[in-house]
Structures are given as C-alpha cells and as structure tokens.
Design a protein around this nucleic acid. Structure first.
Lengths: 236, 236
DNA sequence: AGAGTACTGATGGTCTGACCATCAAATAAT
DNA sequence: ATTATTTGATGGTCAGACCATCAGTACTCT
C-alpha cells in the first residue's frame, strides 16, 4: 500500500498550481494579463489576501509583474534585471564561496566553448568594446567591475542558451554577496586591470576565430589568474 | 549626475530585504525561528497581511518554512525536496527543452569529473545499488525512472558541490515538465533499459577507479545515446 | 472641431479585525 | 509519576475598508 504525500495545503499554493497549469497548457503566455484580484476572488472563491500571497510569491521569482492601476501580467522575459531569489538561498550555505568559484569555473568554460561556436558579429563587437572600457576605466573601480562583468555576461549571452545565461547570472549575483569586497580590492590595482584586459583580449581573439578549444584554454588561463588573486586576498 | 533606481516600493519587498540582511550578517542562520507574524507586525509597524506576503514569497523559493501552531523557520537545508520555482519560469521559454538538454549535458559531464575525484566509498556503493535497481525494475516504469534519476542525482551529490547539485535538480525538475511523456516512453522498452544499465555500469567503473576523463567519456557516450533516443521520439 | 482638463471606475497596495485549526507548554486529574 | 485537559500562541484564512495610481470617458474652453 502506498500513499501519496498530501501537499498544497495552503490556498495560495493551490492558486499558484492552477496558474502553473494554465501556463503549461498554453492558456497563459508571456505578456498576458491575469484577471484582477477581485475577479479571481470570485472565480476561485478565496479571499484577496490569499491571492495576493500567491502573487507576491510569483512576483518574487520573476514570473509575474503587478502594476498599480493597470493589472497583473506575465513577464515577457526573464532576461531583464530581476532580483534573483537563488542568491538568497545560496547565502545560507557554508563554503558557498568556494563552491561558487568552482561552479563558475566549469560553467564559464562550457559557456565560452558554446559562444565560440555561436557568437554573432554584433556580440563580438560588443565584447571588444568592453575590453576598451576596461582599459579606460583605470582608477574608477565601479566602471572596471562593470566592464569585467559585462564581458563575461556577454559571453554567456553569446552561448545562445538562455537557461545557461540565467544560471551564470545567479552565480554572479550570489558571488557579489560573498566576495564583493575582495572583488573591489582586486580591481583597484592598475596592474591587475591590464592583466585582465590582456587575458580578455586573448579570449576575444579565440571567439573571433570561432575556436572553442582555444577559447576554453584562454578562459581557463584567465580564471586561474583570478582565482589565484582571490585566494591570495582572502588568505593574506 | 547619476540617480539610483528607486526600488522596494512594496512593503513586502522591504521586509524581505531586511530578512536578507539579517541572514547576510549572520544573525539568522539555518534552523532559526523567526519572530511570529504578530510580533513582526509590531516591530516593523506593518500589517500582518504584508508580512504574510513576504513570507509566502520566501517560502516559495524554499528559504523559510511555516508550521501552524509552531512558527516560521529558516530551512535547514535545500537538499530536501522543495518545489523549485525555476521550473515554473522555464515553462515560459521557447526551445527550453533543447536548451535544458544542452545544459544538462555540459553540467553532467563536469559533474562526473568532480565526482570521479571525490566520490566516497559509500557513494560508490550507493551508485552500484541503483544499477541493480535499474535491471530489476524492468516492466515497472516508475521504478526504472527512479533508479535512473537516483543514479544521476547521486553523482551530482558526489561532486561535493551543493550549488551544482542544486542546479542539476532544477534542470531535472524542469525537464520533467517538458519531456515527461518522452521519458516514460523511453523507459518502457526493455532493450533501452539494459543499454542504460550497461552504460551506467561503465560510468560506475570509471568513478570507482577515480578516473575523471574516463568517467567524462562514458557519460558523454551515455548522454549521446539518451539524446538520440529523445530526438527520435520527439520527431517520430 | 480640436486640445486640454476633470471626472469616474477599475486596479493594485495596505491595513484592521476577526475566526479557525494546530501545536506546545502549563495545568489539572488520575 | 503518568496521563488528560486546558490554555495560549501561532500560522491560515477571510471580509471589509481606504488609498494611490492609471486608463478611458466626458467635459470644458478656445
């Protein structure tokens, strides 16, 4: 005899489940407007409070967006800059900094391989601009960090895999919490920045020539360098 | 002149932000009990409804857990079987099935390499049992699927990287939505199952010998086989 | 007739106060 | 000392209210 776990005790979870099914069946698509809270209250026979609990949960994960006076809509993409709840969960784990570094390493190498195969001319051009930004940002830590981030972010985008891009962003955001100070220290040294720029240049070349293995090798080299610096900073 | 985006309009978002900071600063740790909703209502000067909206959002992403009559707690691990909100977002994306397969491929290969280096005796023994389960489950699709899943899941766990494990689970859950029927069809053929078992056996051997490259090669072989079957099933 | 303004209704955002089921700890009964 | 019972706190749910915002409509003035 086997019993199935009874779940969805809570009303707001059942509401989410129904919305999920509507999405799965294609009745709700990107950009669609959901019924108003008061309408759903009638349709589902629940209170507005429960509906709002469901909506706030769905809004947190970036699935929907509520606009006062207008209504509630299914977000049309998760490319945009939404708060990533994953980073919150990762906050709780011990040794998470090491694990994030390790995971970023393997993902970034996979990423750059795919990007080497698929990067468009526009993306390659974009990458070039970030190398220049990195060089010209000397002394402005925020700009340096942004240029570095955008370089890696664009590679992830060039991989053509949106789920992979999403994961890379999750890791990046989580790392911001854990090694933010370290990052700022690294970037503040001019010597480090020129090294970064040189390594980015090597990766860029390999991408330009659509050479996955070479790109992977250059990325490894870059990450080795970065991780060495981070470890030195953390220990010393 | 530079303006910062004004965010956190909503009360429930500000509550989440405060909780996040408490976690970041170490004042809230795994297993800790949060103040009761009525206490927070006093402390923060907001309504219970807003607090509950914040809590439902945090519960959705698996950060907290509310137990009637007891209170609300920070979850002590995200190993457990929580609903993964990622799979909901991924529902919206086109071509997501292909992207998931591609991403699973690269992650699984990275995974098995790490596992080859770090797998403990207990984990290797566990893997062995799932191969036997796979062989003896012939005809019972649910059992076959479970044995297959557990094999891959255990490898992810053996990688020693919890964040990686978390990602693998997210992908697995998301794939369940998108190719569930396909999976069941695959598993229903006895021939396929013996092939699976043989390939698992090869992966297992490489892990047992702690040979990362060999393990990666065997895993590639296995995934090639699986993906070929899936494509055949989807097209035909 | 056209342009701008004011009104109106619907919507999300928030709060209050209430009632219930559940659980744990304190209390009473054995 | 053990077992029942009571009690209080907690989360879960609901109804009803008020506000700010927005879109569409009706209105006014030129």
């Amino acid at each position: 005899m086997e019993f199935k776990q009874i779940k969805n005790n809570k009303v707001y979870e059942q509401i989410i489940e129904q919305i999920r099914e509507l999405i799965y069946e294609g009745e709700l698509k990107k950009g669609d407007k959901l019924p108003s809270e008061r309408q759903l209250k009638k349709d589902l026979g629940v209170s507005r409070a429960s509906i709002r609990e469901a909506f706030s949960a769905l809004e947190m994960i970036g699935l929907i967006e509520s606009r006062p006076g207008e209504g509630t809509f299914i977000r049309d993409s998760f490319d945009e800059d939404i708060f990533n709840p994953l980073s919150l969960i990762l906050l709780l784990n011990d040794n998470v900094a090491e694990e994030l570094l390790e995971l970023r390493r393997v993902l970034e190498i996979d990423c750059v391989k795919l990007a080497a195969e698929r990067a468009t001319e526009a993306e390659i051009e974009e990458l070039h601009s970030y190398i220049e930004n990195l060089l010209s940002s000397s002394g402005y830590e925020e700009d340096s960090i942004k240029a570095d981030k955008m370089f890696h972010y664009t590679i992830a985008r060039a991989s053509g895999n949106k789920v992979l891009l999403f994961f890379m962003r999750s890791i990046s955001e989580a790392m911001d919490f854990h090694i933010k100070n370290t990052r700022t220290k690294l970037v503040s040294k001019k010597e480090t920045m020129t090294d970064f720029a040189r390594q980015h240049q090597q990766i860029f070349k390999a991408l330009q020539e659509h050479d996955p293995e070479q790109a992977a090798a250059e990325m490894k080299n870059h990450l080795d360098y970065v991780e060495k610096l981070i470890n030195k900073e953390i220990e010393g």
